[in-house]
């Protein structure tokens, strides 16, 4: 199956500032794709380019088989978008907003919108300016989902919202994914992402640091805490991809490593001067921070090739 989104070597510059630097990734159909990155990393720019609201300086983009730069209208017809800080016409009521937007889509927009409003418990005749922040967010979500888009793009949808509303958003995302459609989510709420994401991409200063299935990341990445007991505070070489190294030249050092060789851990443990190496499974937040501390300008290694498929499709597996 063709991926829903294909981004190939996309660069976007604003004057001297480079917002996206040679990014390539694919979003397969039917998954929940999470885009993580700090503020200003380039996530919103990437999303706007996907919708045809911005122009790339280099590279190609394909969304649902169409080029959004050329066929933005057709793309937007099949994509639902929940922007960060959404803007609505405050003087409209909820139902008026739905009616207005329905004019631009197909006929079953309004019934879907009504159903979604009921689901979200939105008062239909209340003016948008009197709604709370959560209410507004729900309206925007309802408008984005009412035309049953193939791809739902959400740009930090739950920032600043209360728990109940966030829960509603999560449920909607899950509904969309369960219906076989794709969700692209850009968020700061990493615990949420950890629950629902299939794939995770981390963007840092315009560079794509990693793009992989969450499973793979969790399986392959480990957090090691190394305790030294002597005066020798240097780490011996070992075979593993070190994503981040915290506290060099100290008695306790933390390493985030990926795909360590089977004996790398024992080598370290056996090394004189190292009293102990604790192994933990990192949370997604720790993984995220680790990748971000690895600034590409400081010699880190961003990833430019496509994602890898999950390693154990055939797991079936034992429960251990």
């Amino acid at each position: 199956m063709n991926p829903v989104i294909q981004i190939k070597h996309v660069t976007r510059r604003f004057g001297n500032k480079v917002a996206l630097d040679n990014i390539s990734l694919d979003v397969p159909r039917g998954c929940v794709f999470a885009l993580l990155g700090e503020n200003g990393a380039g996530k919103t720019t990437a999303i706007r380019n996907l919708l045809g609201l911005d122009r790339v300086s280099a590279g190609t983009i394909e969304v649902l088989g169409m080029n959004p730069q050329k066929h933005g209208t057709a793309v937007r017809r099949q994509v639902g978008y929940v922007p960060d800080t959404p803007a609505l016409y405050d003087w409209m009521t909820v139902s008026e907003a739905g009616w207005f937007t329905a004019g631009f889509y197909a006929d079953d927009f309004l019934p879907n919108f009504s159903r979604l409003c009921e689901q979200f418990e939105l008062p239909r005749s209340q003016k948008i300016k009197t709604l709370s922040k959560g209410g507004r967010a729900k309206v925007v979500l309802a408008l984005a989902m009412a035309h049953e888009p193939e791809l739902l793009i959400m740009d930090e949808p739950t920032s600043g919202l209360d728990t109940l509303v966030r829960r509603k958003f999560l449920e909607s995302m899950i509904d969309v994914a369960a219906a076989g459609r794709t969700v692209l989510l850009s968020s700061h709420q990493i615990p949420e992402v950890e629950r629902v994401a299939d794939l995770v991409a981390i963007i840092h200063e315009g560079h794509l640091m990693v793009c992989d299935h969450l499973e793979n990341l969790k399986r392959e990445i480990e957090r090691w805490v190394v305790s030294f007991d002597g005066t020798e505070l240097n780490l011996p070489p070992f075979e593993a991809e070190v994503i981040s190294h915290a506290g060099p030249q100290r008695k306790r050092q933390q390493l985030i490593v990926r795909n360590p060789a089977p004996d790398a851990l024992w080598r370290l443990r056996d090394h004189p001067g190292i009293s102990e190496v604790e192994v933990h499974t990192p949370t997604l937040e720790e993984i995220f921070v680790a990748f971000l501390s690895n600034s590409p300008d400081a010699g880190g290694r961003p990833i430019n090739d496509g994602l890898r498929s999950p390693a154990d499709q055939s797991s079936g597996g034992s429960i251990t």
Binding site: L51, V75, R76, Y81, P83, A87, L88, Y89, F104
Partner: peptide, 10 residues
């Protein structure tokens, strides 16, 4: 900023 709203429409 409602131009953003209009921009999303197809």
């Amino acid at each position: 900023r409602t131009s953003q709203f209009l921009g999303i429409l197809p």
